Amino acid sequence: MEVTKKYVARKIKTVRWKPPTTDYGRTDVFITGSWDDLDNVVEVWQVPETEEDPSRLHQLPHLGSVNDMQYITRDMFAAGSSNGGVKLYQHDSSNHLEEKMSWDRAHTFVGSSAPCTALATNGDQIASVGEDGNLVILNPNQKIPIRTIESVGGCSVYAVVYVRASEVVTANMQGHLKLWDLRSAQSARATLLSPDQIAVCDLASHPTQQHLVAAGGEDGALAIWDMRNTSQPFTIISAHSGPISEVRFHPGAPEHVFTCGLDGQLIHWDASASARPTHIPSFKNTRDPSGGSINVWLSSDVARGAIETVSVIPYSPLPINSVDVEGSTLIAGSDNEAIYMVRQVLLY
């Protein structure tokens, strides 16, 4: 692996690769969002084919900290703000950004705004959660929210992820995970408790088997949930010495997971050694397009904690807030006003 570090003079809260133009293509463009500044920005970067640092293509001012960003299409993404708003941005042919839509008060307290804490996208839907405890469902073409489910946890909600086209899981500061069917007017289908009610800081779903959800905890542990059997996490593995800020499955090799945290670590969780036919009942029918076993995270080895963890970058004295990976290249954003880039993070 080769690690480079580019100083950008802003604390980076969120990094996201722009999706490739084809399902099997690669991308060389990513976006970042800053936070904790008087003049926060959303920026577009391009990675050169050489070993040089990424170059800035465009930036737009952003009101409030950029707490999360998620792509809806290959050219459009949503950004959630600390001022309670959600904005929709689109890339043009030169990868410059233009604002397409704004929901300025998606999250509010009585008489003031409430920070939007996390976003999830699925087709033409955006799910937004915030410190007001609300789950808000938005359509990119509609100014009025499709639905608002009030106080889904009775406290700040930190994470949200789609597990099916019309089902989302939310997680809050008390360690409650709630499974919601957006087609139903009823309350949450299930309430799950993380061990010792530790706050869940981030959620990520498996790229091809969305019923598998990884949860990063305030205690630095990674928990794997099977949403078909929600009585308890399938496994819990500790590695970070502080809260996990983000969790990401590798989109093409989902037996690899990456986490970053407030302890300044960026960790690669490698379960590929468990992807053997002997661990699954019907190997020929349980392969994903990447060639790995889709059940690797539910193997007996992983349940026993037999998983390799590797520190990807040298220790950072300040939090690493966000991580994303595409192909063999990983990017991360941190409070030390730097973007990390790790090439050859996976050797195929």
Rank of each mutant, 00 (worst) to 15 (best):
317 P>V: 13
324 D>H: 05
282 S>Y: 07
286 T>I: 07
332 A>L: 01
321 N>L: 12
320 I>S: 10
273 A>Y: 09
291 G>Y: 03
333 G>Q: 06
294 I>M: 06
278 T>A: 14
338 A>G: 01
286 T>F: 04
301 D>K: 04
311 S>H: 10
303 A>H: 11
313 I>P: 00
293 S>Y: 00
277 P>V: 06
287 R>G: 11
302 V>A: 11
299 S>Y: 02
311 S>L: 10
337 E>W: 01
272 S>R: 09
271 A>Q: 10
338 A>K: 04
298 L>H: 05
286 T>Q: 13
343 R>C: 06
311 S>M: 10
319 P>N: 11
314 P>N: 05
281 P>T: 01
282 S>K: 11
282 S>N: 15
303 A>P: 02
304 R>Y: 08
319 P>W: 15
283 F>P: 01
293 S>L: 10
285 N>P: 05
317 P>K: 13
330 L>D: 07
316 S>I: 11
280 I>S: 00
333 G>I: 04
329 T>K: 07
329 T>M: 11
316 S>R: 10
311 S>C: 00
329 T>A: 03
283 F>V: 07
337 E>I: 05
297 W>P: 06
333 G>Y: 02
293 S>C: 12
313 I>K: 03
302 V>R: 02
318 L>F: 03
306 A>L: 15
328 S>T: 14
279 H>G: 10
286 T>N: 11
289 P>R: 09
314 P>S: 13
344 Q>F: 08
328 S>D: 15
296 V>I: 10
288 D>T: 08
313 I>L: 07
335 D>R: 04
277 P>D: 13
296 V>K: 05
293 S>I: 01
286 T>E: 13
274 S>K: 08
303 A>M: 04
306 A>S: 05
277 P>T: 01
326 E>Y: 00
345 V>H: 06
